[in-house]
Design a binder for these strands. Structure first.
Lengths: 324, 324
DNA sequence: CATGGTAAGTAATGCGCATTACCCAGATCG
DNA sequence: CGATCTGGGTAATGCGCATTACTTACCATG
């Protein structure tokens, strides 16, 4: 386990390839407007490969005045399976564009976002929910080029989810719909979007608006929510996400009831344990990889100053299982 | 929402404070061996605060030859709730020491670890499972100062978990124990540790070794596993983690059986949905924040070239619910 | 043949910081 | 009284790279 071997720099590559460091830089960055003959190009590339050269990110960032770091601010909330996967996919998608995703947990313990942004010299800062103006200002001042309120579930996207959930219930004959709101405040904004979709679906079907009830992931809280729905003759519930839906299922059980007979339940996300529930959870899922890639593209576009171009349509689909 | 505003550099601070940039650097880094009168110190500090100065990470890294980045390599596996939380806690703990945790997903899509390590100029690289020698070498060569096989579940720690699980079952009178191994290869190393603990507990109690069976998170696979245990007259099963345990529960249901009557089930992690399962899952949990802080300390120690000092004992505890 | 153009490069510069080497006024000492 | 030390600083340097300004050799063209 020795550790000798100094770092290999672009100057090393230059020396071995018999060119100047400038040329190496041009070749490696594919600088346009500078004609480098193919032979030289290849030679440099080959030497770089042989020497196992990797540009030094800090130096590059310092010289170029911009890093390749995209900072993702995550609310300090119980991250469910879906968000986690989304983050992973985002990281992979951005990596394909040469960007590095680093996540920052908001919340009491951490340093302020603008602080982190400045210290890592982030190129862009994105979040799951929109930043208020003050925060955005602070981030720009902290050196961010792009600050995107790139919500995981953009307003445009929250609605279809709710519609899909409610639509399924309505199609199955339910006339009084409930909605299970998450207890965590950080999730509220996202939940509001989805709830709106449910409201819309109910309106379209000529039904009364859904009975929205909040519940934590505790059995008691869920049982109370179930009681409330029962009191309002609700027969089908759309839950904010799968975890909330599982809580509802547990609440039903607690009350000696069951899904879908007493109350049909539809979740969102299709987390791995959704299919393992009793009964297996009917839920709405979408291709996280696809979505992450879409988001990454929006970011790239913003960085390039372009308009996002065609954003891939996110395809949500209902996964029918036993709970509804 | 525009506001250009150049970055504030240490030179700016120096100018305003009427000292040299060198002095600012000394003050801000608390450089020992250089006597700076309190008055100057305070003045610099105050100006830095007023100007909202934040050192530029890249510049600092370049100048100092070392970044403040700790790279965490995560296997490309379905990260359950527990690992995610662990990562969050790690990040927070390291941030308290001025370090930044960035995670890298191993796996086909991503760039090789050593590559990432070199480009971000990571100070340390850590992982959940041990790195083999070649990889470690490559990482050192890529510039890492410290490479820790800092396993989430260190060999020393995997055993107690298994022991705790098995101990509970044995105490409840089970004489033939099963073990549910996760299907994902990336989890195998961790699982082996825990299984070993179960083996030890069985041996201690004079029982035969556990019947280890692999299962994915699909109901069918779990049902098959359940059948296998039934065929071996196993009455209690320790699962690798809660998700696997939930699969076993679903497998039981599929077979028309139930826990704990037909088969007692014990998980690990106490993920949020564990208490929502049918029946609520008995599981082993531990204080992730505590553990993360402990790990962070080990890293800090290694960076300082010190021995880890006293590592906080990780306290696992059994959470008794209905499934076992 | 002078002029300009282009292809193929290189030297020099500076990003923001940490660090090293140095500097100077006054106190202490031999 | 000159030499030495020391507290309180500063100037200069360089990390590894991207970028800008410049150079040289080799054409083509009027």
């Amino acid at each position: 386990m020795t550790r000798p071997a100094k770092r290999i720099t672009s100057t090393d590559v230059a020396r071995v390839a018999g060119v100047s460091q400038t040329t190496v830089s041009f070749v490696l960055n594919d600088k346009p407007g500078h004609s480098i003959p193919e032979a030289t190009r290849l030679r440099v590339l080959e030497v770089a490969r042989q020497l196992d050269y990797r540009p030094h990110a800090s130096a590059r960032a310092l010289a170029a005045g911009r890093s390749d770091i995209v900072l993702l601010s995550l609310p300090d909330l119980p991250m469910g399976g879906a968000i986690t996967r989304f983050v992973e996919e985002m990281a992979a998608a951005l990596a394909d564009h040469g960007l590095t995703l680093v996540t920052h947990l908001a919340g009491a313990r951490g340093r302020p976002l603008a602080d982190v942004c400045a210290t890592v010299n982030a190129l862009a800062v994105i979040g799951l929910t929109s930043f208020d103006d003050d925060t955005a200002q602070a981030l720009y001042r902290a050196g961010a080029d792009v600050v995107l309120p790139t919500r995981f579930s953009h307003s445009a996207a929250g609605l279809p989810v709710g519609r899909l959930q409610a639509g399924h219930l309505i199609a199955r004959g339910h006339r009084r719909i409930g909605y299970a709101l998450p207890a965590h405040p950080g999730l509220r904004e996202m939940a509001a979007d989805r709830l709106e979709g449910v409201v819309a679906a109910c309106a379209d079907a000529g039904l009364e608006p859904p009975v929205a009830v909040g519940t934590s992931l505790e059995v008691d809280a869920a049982a109370a929510a179930v009681a409330q729905w029962a009191g309002n003759s609700v027969t089908g519930v759309c839950a904010f996400n799968d975890e909330t839906a599982l809580a509802v299922l547990a609440g039903l059980r607690e009350q000696g009831l069951s899904a879908p007979g007493d109350l049909a339940v539809v979740g969102v996300d299709d987390i791995p344990v959704a299919r393992l529930a009793a009964p297996p959870l009917t839920t709405v899922s979408f291709d996280l990889r696809h979505a992450a890639r879409g988001r990454a593209e929006v970011i790239m576009a913003a960085l390039a100053g372009r308009e996002p171009g065609l954003v891939h349509r996110e395809e949500w689909r209902l996964i029918r299982r036993a709970s509804a």
